[in-house]
């Protein structure tokens, strides 16, 4: 088993069009670092200085990591991680 990561459409150009990729158990931030090694450039789109960007939401299974342990949330084998850019704007 592995960790399944759902990649949002805006970032799929960095994963060769893949909607889902696999990663290893660990913390959220270690998972992002792992993704960035394999898909260069994806890390800075998701986080900055070890923190998740304000306009990016990350879910482990059904839970928003902001209500868990944020970047230090532990991800286990079989978990599904969803990376979801916010929808925002206005005037």
């Amino acid at each position: 088993m592995a960790v399944i990561v759902r990649i949002p459409t805006p970032l799929q150009r960095l994963t060769q069009g893949k909607e889902e990729v696999e990663s290893r158990p660990g913390t959220v931030i270690s998972l992002i670092n792992d993704l960035d090694k394999r898909f260069p450039g994806i890390g800075e789109r998701i986080s900055e200085g070890g923190k998740i960007r304000r306009f990016v939401n990350i879910y482990v299974n059904e839970e928003d990591i902001r209500f868990l342990k944020a970047e230090e949330t532990e991800i286990k084998d079989g978990d599904e991680v969803s990376i979801i850019p916010a929808i925002a704007g206005g005037r």
């Binding site: 949002p8 459409t9 805006p10 306009f55 916010a86 929808i87 925002a88 704007g89 206005g90 005037r91």
Partner: peptide, 22 residues
């Protein structure tokens, strides 16, 4: 989304935060 007080045209903020391009 609505623009209650401005034109029906993307604002600079709309453009800056348009993460979804499809």
């Amino acid at each position: 989304h609505s623009h209650p007080h401005s034109d029906a045209y993307p604002s600079p903020r709309d453009v800056k935060l348009a993460f979804y391009t499809e």
